[in-house]
């Protein structure tokens, strides 16, 4: 087949491959407004779901999922376990300190307290979805965790 035939077939292909829905493009533009939110980002630096399973045999799905988020000064470790069908996220802050925690998922908000030993626990919705945590400390500073499917 000639190069022209190939180009033509590729162009035909481009025509049938679906373009992104306009609402997805619009929603992606809106994401820019997240930049204006106060507080420091805690980047996702470890997720056992991705970082541990490469090349390894995925033995049991019962093992809890471990996640770590980090800012320059604070570490948020979290563990997701499923007990009797309830998905529970338990975690702690290092260094330990009390805070207010707001979890944002599916446009809804769940709030809980982080105790003075830096621990927190939250029950998540049934299905995994994109989740962010806003953690506000008593001194008025706050951090937010990178949006992650949990």
């Amino acid at each position: 087949m000639s190069a022209d035939d190939d180009d033509e077939l590729l162009a035909d292909l481009a025509a049938i491959l679906l373009p992104p829905p306009p609402e997805l493009v619009a929603a992606s533009k809106e994401i820019f407004t997240w930049r204006t939110i106060d507080g420091e980002l805690a980047a996702l630096t470890f997720d056992s779901l991705i970082d541990e399973s490469v090349g390894a045999v995925r033995s049991s799905t019962d093992a809890p999922r471990m996640l770590t988020f980090e800012t320059g000064s604070t570490l948020v470790d979290a563990e997701l376990s499923v007990v009797d069908g309830v998905r529970r996220l338990m975690g702690h802050l290092s260094p330990a300190r009390a805070a207010e925690l707001e979890l944002i998922v599916d446009g809804g908000r769940l709030t809980t307290d982080v105790d003075d030993r830096g621990r927190f626990s939250l029950d998540l919705p049934e299905t995994a979805a994109r989740v962010e945590m806003r953690i506000r400390f008593d001194d008025g500073t706050s951090i937010w965790t990178a949006a992650t499917a949990i």
Partner: peptide
């Protein structure tokens, strides 16, 4: 759509 938006969120976070 969710995954595409998450990729854009990551970029906002790391701009």
């Amino acid at each position: 759509a969710e995954v595409v938006q998450t990729a854009w969120l990551r970029l906002v976070e790391h701009l």
